[in-house]
């Protein structure tokens, strides 16, 4: 599936990216006081893409991700979803529009079981109106659906009834990723999904990300691990000092080139300082 995707992407004008992007940022900027964390970022993300967001510490990756997940409002610029401007004032707004985020620190509740965490904040109720009035949880349905969702992603967990606090880092990460996959329909954002994991656990998380990507929902993955990026990404976007300095197809670039953009050793004439909306040419620039 992913291989086929790449084959398509590598062809001339990337027909996979025709049509309306699922998510698009236009001239997105963010100032923290006098610090410019994001500068005129134009990015289009299409269904089926796995976009790796890379850059040095302080490059603006988390800032971009937070803007997309509604954690704050950008100083200027717009975010479009399915071609229409979207108002993402709170994380709840973003989630309603189908954008789900796994934060660096996971945001799971240790004392609640796996099923409960998958449904946290949107638990189904039972017994009709009365159940909705009193918030009576449909625990059997939560467990059952959680089990099914995890099975679909081939996540192995002793029981969806065990509290997240009793599980390994990898299992927690899997739970967090499964939660985004369960609810996200437009965009899934993973901030450093493998940063805290061991070799075996990273492997499982990458596998999980590939499985999620195979469902066709676009993903943004923030990572510092070049090897992992080249394994899962279909596209690599480099931020440097708040600017989008490179937008590369995975099959078209190399780790050296990416590192060059990250460190600033390499610059791309194809991405002007105040890039227009011509992001695709940026991708073909270094070819």
């Amino acid at each position: 599936m992913t291989d086929q995707q790449n084959a398509v992407d590598m062809s001339e004008h990337a027909p996979g990216r025709l049509g309306t992007p699922a998510v698009r940022t236009i001239g997105l900027s963010k100032w923290y006081g006098s610090v410019r964390a994001l500068s005129e970022v134009n990015l289009e993300i299409y269904p089926g893409e796995v976009v790796a967001l890379v850059g040095d510490n302080g490059a603006g990756k988390s800032t971009l991700v937070k803007a997309l997940s509604g954690a704050f409002q950008p100083t200027s610029g717009e975010i479009h979803i399915d071609g229409a401007p979207a108002r993402l004032h709170t994380p709840a707004d973003a989630r309603k529009l189908g954008i789900e985020t796994v934060y660096q620190d996971l945001a799971l509740v240790a004392h609640v079981d796996v099923g409960g965490n998958l449904y946290l904040g949107r638990e189904p109720t039972r017994w009709g109106v009365i159940g909705r009035l009193f918030g009576i949880l449909d625990l059997p349905a939560m467990s059952k659906h959680a089990e099914r969702a995890l099975a679909e992603l081939k996540v192995t967990i002793p029981s969806v009834r065990s509290p997240v606090g009793t599980m390994s880092g990898g299992q927690r990460q899997a739970t967090a990723i499964a939660r985004t996959a369960l609810w996200g329909s437009k965009l899934l954002i993973l901030d450093e999904p493998t940063a805290a994991l061991g070799v075996q656990e990273s492997e499982e998380a990458l596998q999980l990300i590939e499985d999620v990507a195979a469902q066709g929902i676009p993903l943004i993955v923030v990572s510092h691990n070049i090897e992992h990026i080249f394994r899962i990404a279909t596209r690599i976007v480099v931020l440097r000092q708040g600017r989008l300095v490179a937008d590369l197809d995975r099959g078209d670039t190399s780790p050296d080139e990416v590192v060059g953009y990250i460190t600033g050793a390499r610059t791309s004439a194809a991405v002007p300082a105040d890039a227009g909306d011509d992001v695709d040419t940026a991708g073909s620039g270094p070819r």
Partner: peptide, 20 residues
Amino acid sequence: RFGRYTVAIGSNEEAARRAG
């Protein structure tokens, strides 16, 4: 929900908030 959110808030308030 009342009980569930009581646990969630006590266990990880930030996670509860992010979960909406």
